[in-house]
């Protein structure tokens, strides 16, 4: 019964995600011919269609799929962990930490002239790790379950504190750096090559792997920590795994594409409207739907005002904001 539902939902959403990933590279501001793109007789360097397909669009679509998928799944896990449907992957400070790292790299990276520190993705990843480590250290005590209240407060406080630091660094930055920072904060999937994707894969796969163990414990956890414990859930361990895997997933996604908002909250809510609230169905469905959603939003971002592009974070916000208001009105 559960299995049949799980299978049908995963197949349906998998087909949707796959369809989006296959269709999106064919559509863009310029028309390309697939036949030419895959024509091996033309050297790659001379084949503009192949370049557009393999260098510009494929990495971009793949990034969209990976980022959409991890953010949506991390959103589901955070919401269950905090017992709060309004939580997002960014609630606990991970993205603000990443943003601080990115801002530091943008502002001071070139003057440091050290390749590694100048790299925006690496710096943002480091920022995300530092932020999660601080929140984790504040909210956990050995042998005790995590207090979600402390977790939430620590996350919200750290968000505010890091935001203040970002403003401070921004103030020291010059005009072009400040502008670049603002652009980074809007999110961008145009990674330009497969290398950043490959670099993020270990983290993404590890976090998705941990997610696979979480759904049933998360069901119980979202009913109440004590109830979960008496039903046989190791609450402390589940909370730690959920926090670490969701933070890791978020860190990977944000360092890859910037903090793209609303994916981590709109997708889980949409999916719950369609398939119910059982995390064993919601989690895989959100991961798949998140991929399709972000690939779709990016398709809009890069075509609607072509040749000018709309930042993808603006598109997700324009879809997400009204959807959320509708959800509120519908509930009240």
């Amino acid at each position: 019964m559960v299995r049949a539902r799980l299978t049908s939902v995963v197949c349906a959403y998998g087909a949707l995600a796959l369809g989006a990933c296959l269709a999106a590279p064919l559509i863009g501001s310029t028309h390309i011919s697939l036949a030419r793109a895959f024509d091996r007789s033309v050297p790659f360097a001379d084949n503009v269609d192949a370049q557009i397909f393999f260098v510009a669009r494929m990495p971009r679509v793949l990034t969209g799929a990976i980022v959409g998928s991890t953010l949506a799944a991390a959103g589901v896990v955070m919401q269950a962990l905090l017992g709060n449907p309004l939580a997002t992957p960014f609630t606990l400070g991970v993205s603000t930490g990443a943003a601080l790292g990115a801002v530091l790299a943008i502002t001071f990276g070139s003057s440091l002239a050290v390749g590694v520190l100048a790299s925006v993705p690496l710096a943002s990843l480091a920022g995300a790790v530092v932020a999660s480590a601080i929140v984790y250290a504040l909210a956990t005590r050995p042998g005790r379950p995590i207090s979600t209240m402390v977790l939430l407060l620590a996350g919200v406080t750290l968000n505010a504190f890091f935001s203040a630091l970002i403003l401070f660094v921004q103030y020291a930055a010059d005009f072009t750096q400040a502008y670049r920072t603002i652009r980074w904060l809007m999110g961008d999937l145009d990674v330009g090559s497969f290398a950043p994707i490959v670099a993020s894969l270990p983290m993404v796969l590890l976090s998705l792997g941990i997610f696979a163990f979480l759904p049933r414990p998360l069901n119980l956890l979202s009913v109440g920590a004590d109830t979960a414990a008496t039903r046989g859930v190791d609450v402390g361990r589940t909370q730690r795994l959920a926090f670490l895997s969701a933070s890791l997933a978020t860190a990977a996604a944000v360092s890859l594409a910037g903090p793209i908002g609303f994916v981590g909250i709109v997708v889980p809510h949409l999916v719950r409207l369609m398939v119910g609230v059982d995390h064993r169905v919601v989690l895989p469905a959100s991961a798949l739907f998140g991929a399709a959603f972000l690939v779709g939003c990016d398709l809009v971002a890069r075509t609607v005002l072509a040749p000018v592009e709309v930042p993808v974070g603006v598109v997700t916000a324009m879809v997400g904001g009204p959807f959320f208001l509708w959800l509120l009105v519908r509930k009240s």
Partner: peptide, 13 residues
Amino acid sequence: VIGRDAGELRGVY
């Protein structure tokens, strides 16, 4: 080009 992220083709102005 008046701006670009270090080491990659991102954030090109």
